[in-house]
Design a protein around this nucleic acid. Structure first.
Length: 305
DNA sequence: AAAAAACCCAACCGCGTTCGG
DNA sequence: ACCGAACGCGGTTGGGTTTTT
């Protein structure tokens, strides 16, 4: 059974939006608020798919949208966040007020990816691609591809794997290495702060100042996702079996430890091996990155005030 | 000046996740 | 617990604009 299309495409406008359509959509959303995108076109009298309306509103018409002129600070933040989060554009955009995920994604693809990884800069153009499609793969093009793959593999990366792709495992590195004893999560107080963030309990500003800046920064991230980069000890293990955090063990995942004492919420040995064998990303590197990011954002917010 | 190539970004598409009945 | 609808996300495409030849 195929997926039902989001709407009937027949008789609908496609492509660029006209000023009149923009006005209709803006007026409608201003009057009725966001949501119910599927019904919106009919109610507003637009010949557009609901999805298209949503996208147009979120990426272009919203009043708080900031357009163009990405500042150096924003650029640095994007680079930093991308190194931590990868292509999680919506998360990155969430840290850049007024910027949309689409804008950041485009900006990354057209500007930053070249700056960061010039060796990966193989132009994508519809014409070029059409040409490429016409031509059989040459020795040169395949070696280019290999070079790109190699460069990508060699590129140091400190990604926080915020969402498992086709896998629900959560990997918690071993506490045994000295590097795992990094300061800002080394005591139970801070760990409990972390747990509280996870409960989505609103914390007062003063409370948050007491907590680790990294924790404050992490407050509105999905802690279940981010926790994969943190060390584990007995107290944390206990948290895992408590109801509040017990969600880590959902979906029939099996909690196990490996030879290094690392904790796995996954019973797939092959995947564990693959994950372990990936890059050399250490907990301390992640911690340092998060801390840097936290102070960066703090200073940015101070600057705005 | 014209054609081709490159660039840029809005919009589309399909899939995964969340929500509500 | 299940299922379908709605939503949200990230990858990709298409076409307008700018730059190069």
């Amino acid at each position: 059974m195929g997926r039902r299309p989001c709407c009937s495409k027949e008789g609908l406008n496609r492509g660029a939006w006209s000023a009149r359509e923009d006005k209709i959509l803006t007026d409608y959303v201003t009057a009725h608020g966001e949501g119910k995108w599927r019904d919106l076109p009919k109610r507003a009298g637009l010949k557009r798919c609901g999805k298209s309306c949503r996208l147009r509103w979120l990426n272009y018409l919203r009043p708080d949208i900031k357009r163009g002129n990405i500042t150096e600070d924003e650029e640095n933040l994007i680079i930093k966040l991308h190194s931590l989060l990868g292509n999680r554009w919506s998360l990155i955009a969430g840290r850049l007020p007024g910027r949309t995920d689409n804008e950041i994604k485009n900006y990354w693809n057209t500007n930053l990816s070249k700056k960061i990884m010039p060796q990966l800069c193989i132009r994508r153009s519809s014409k070029g691609k059409a040409e490429a499609n016409k031509l059989p793969a040459t020795a040169d093009s395949s070696s280019d591809h290999e070079a790109v793959t190699r460069a990508a593999a060699e590129q140091p990366t400190f990604l926080i794997k915020t969402k498992a792709v086709r896998c629900s495992k959560v990997y918690i590195p071993s506490p045994s290495s000295p590097a795992t004893q990094h300061e800002h999560l080394a005591n139970n107080h801070q760990r409990s702060e972390l747990a509280r963030c996870n409960e989505n309990t609103p914390s007062s500003a003063s409370e948050l100042q007491v907590a680790d800046p990294a924790c404050c920064f992490l407050e509105d991230f999905d802690m279940e996702e981010l926790i994969s980069g943190f060390p584990v000890d007995d107290a944390f293990l206990q948290l895992c079996v408590d109801d509040d955090v017990g969600q880590f063990t959902r979906q029939n995942d099996v909690v196990s430890t490996d030879d290094n004492g690392s904790l796995w919420f996954c019973d797939d040995d092959a995947m564990q091996d693959e994950f372990r064998g990936s890059d050399g990303c250490t907990e301390s590197q992640i911690a340092a990155e998060v801390e840097t990011l936290a102070s960066l954002i703090d200073s940015e917010e101070e600057h705005r005030e």
